[in-house]
């Protein structure tokens, strides 16, 4: 059961990820990416990370992708004209990707510790949010506050960037 859910979600996620990257229309790309992120949230839930799964849906599938769709509609992008990539860029890109996959397969096959099954939890993590929050506020309090400043800087920066003329 667990295995079936894992493979179903993974295959769907990779399928929609591939569609998101390689379909023509920008709106199609964005919608496939939304489904990809929803499947990824499902994978987080199979790993008992309920809080991360929920913020994945809220922040990524919700906020970030709505922002993407707004920009695509604002810019009124048409489908791309078919432009051939040069053979050398296809070859170079394919070489980098195949090399990366090859190294990944080698590393995953080499280490026997990676083929372990999920260890059993003491209890089902129903208080997932509390546990993440405790770590966040005890061990990572300073980074948490710095990230608040980062968000403020990003907000101000976006307002400045989107003005008609930057003085």
């Amino acid at each position: 059961m667990q295995t079936a859910i894992f493979w179903l979600l993974s295959v769907l996620m990779l399928l929609f990820g591939g569609l998101a990257v390689f379909s023509r229309g920008p709106v199609n790309c964005a919608m496939s990416l939304v489904f990809c992120f929803v499947c990824l949230a499902g994978l987080f839930v199979t790993l008992d990370a309920f809080f991360i799964g929920i913020i994945q849906i809220l922040v990524y599938a919700g906020a970030v992708m709505v922002l993407f769709l707004f920009i695509i509609m604002l810019l009124d992008l048409k489908n791309e004209r078919v432009r051939r990539l040069s053979l050398s860029s296809w070859a170079g890109g394919g070489l980098v990707l195949c090399g990366f996959l090859g190294i990944l397969g080698k590393v995953l096959a080499a280490d026997p510790r990676l083929s372990m099954a999920k260890p059993a939890l003491a209890s089902p993590p129903v208080d997932d949010v509390m546990a993440v929050g405790a770590v966040l506020f005890r061990n990572f309090n300073l980074p948490f506050q710095i990230i608040a400043v980062l968000l403020l800087v990003a907000t101000v920066g976006v307002v400045l960037l989107s003005r008609k003329e930057i003085k």
Binding site: F6, M13, L14, L40, L43, G105, M116, K118
Partner: peptide, 14 residues
């Protein structure tokens, strides 16, 4: 059951 290397493989392909 899915192992750690299954998850890492999916993550690597993504």
């Amino acid at each position: 059951v899915p192992t750690l290397s299954n998850y890492l493989l999916v993550s690597g392909v993504l």
